[in-house]
């Protein structure tokens, strides 16, 4: 069994007394050593989840362990990049890295941080306030990588970036994961940018877990089938079915043999995610259970 990066049980988070909970009874397990995508529409609770894992806020219900401990105990071992990439505008790039070194005594790696900045062709003496969105993201990432985290939490890291910057930064991120074995957990509402880089998926919808598990296993557990509209989909679990004229297209979780007349393919990540987002009542599928993983 692999080690666990983040584990949640009955996790709930409610802002204010009355409001709708941002997270509600979430249970999942993200293994260490991989790249996990936290996917969901805006308002699904992705940012809330990541900020809980970073020890920035406290859950109002349930428990969350990070690297086997409480989030506050592992502050030094976890990197976090917030969605809006906050940095001090009055500092230069070099001073920002010095700031990171001063606040991470004993962990900071100048080489990693400086290389991350250098790959973006940034002037170390340039003020943060003069940087573009992509350059800011790079500095924020350098700050997070410089502390040599065992777990890196990234909230919508690539939003507002042009395709080139997106590709370069994902490359930087994956290279760090390859070299140091860093576990990466990144949220996104753009599924396309995750395809290829992630090996684990956590799909959230309206504060609840919809899908959780290794990406390959989740994809393999589903089939995209097309057939005649009058065909019965029993006994399979139907995530979403749409009929157009005489035709039927459905995303199912096969339970046993299928009608050979159907055309079927394994869905792509995007097809899997979109079908689940369009069908909020589809049953939850978790393939990340400790018990199941051990089998």
């Amino acid at each position: 069994m692999t080690e666990t990066a983040i584990e949640a049980a009955g996790l709930g988070m409610r802002f204010g007394r009355r409001g709708k909970p941002a997270l509600d009874g979430c249970a999942f397990r993200i293994p260490a050593g991989g790249v996990c995508a936290v996917v969901g529409p805006n308002g699904a609770g992705k940012s809330t989840l990541l900020s809980l894992a970073a020890g920035l806020t406290r859950p109002t219900a349930g428990a969350l362990t990070v690297l086997g401990r409480s989030p506050a105990e592992v502050r030094a071992r976890v990197g976090y990049v917030a969605q809006d990439k906050p940095l001090y505008p009055q500092l230069t790039v070099a001073e920002t890295l010095r700031w990171g070194r001063e606040l991470n005594p004993g962990r900071w790696d100048d080489k990693v941080a400086e290389r991350t900045v250098a790959e973006g062709d940034l002037d170390p003496e340039g003020k943060i306030r003069t940087l573009s969105g992509g350059q800011r993201t790079r500095v924020a990432l350098a700050l997070a990588l410089g502390k040599r985290p065992e777990l890196l939490l990234l909230d919508e890291p690539m939003a507002d970036l042009d395709p080139l910057a997106r590709h370069q930064l994902t490359g930087t991120l994956m290279a760090d994961a390859a070299e140091h074995g860093t576990t990466v957990v990144m949220s996104s509402h753009v599924v396309a940018e995750l395809e290829g880089s992630c090996d684990h998926l956590l799909l959230l919808g309206a504060g609840r877990v919809r899908l959780a598990g290794p990406l390959d296993d989740l994809l393999a557990a589903h089939r995209l089938v097309t057939g005649r509209a009058d065909a019965s989909l029993d006994p399979h679990t139907v995530v979403e079915a749409r009929t157009t004229g005489r035709g039927l297209t459905a995303l199912i979780r096969p339970e046993g043999p299928r009608d050979p007349a159907w055309q079927e393919t394994v869905p792509t990540l995007e097809e899997l995610v979109l079908a689940h987002l369009r069908a909020p009542q589809a049953p939850v599928l978790r393939l990340d259970d400790v018990q199941e993983a051990a089998v």
Partner: peptide
């Protein structure tokens, strides 16, 4: 190429390499 070199250029998951 090392896994690091491949993923840096292609932005894919290291485990895939």
């Amino acid at each position: 190429p090392t896994a690091r070199e491949v993923v840096e250029a292609t932005a894919i998951n290291p485990n895939t390499v």
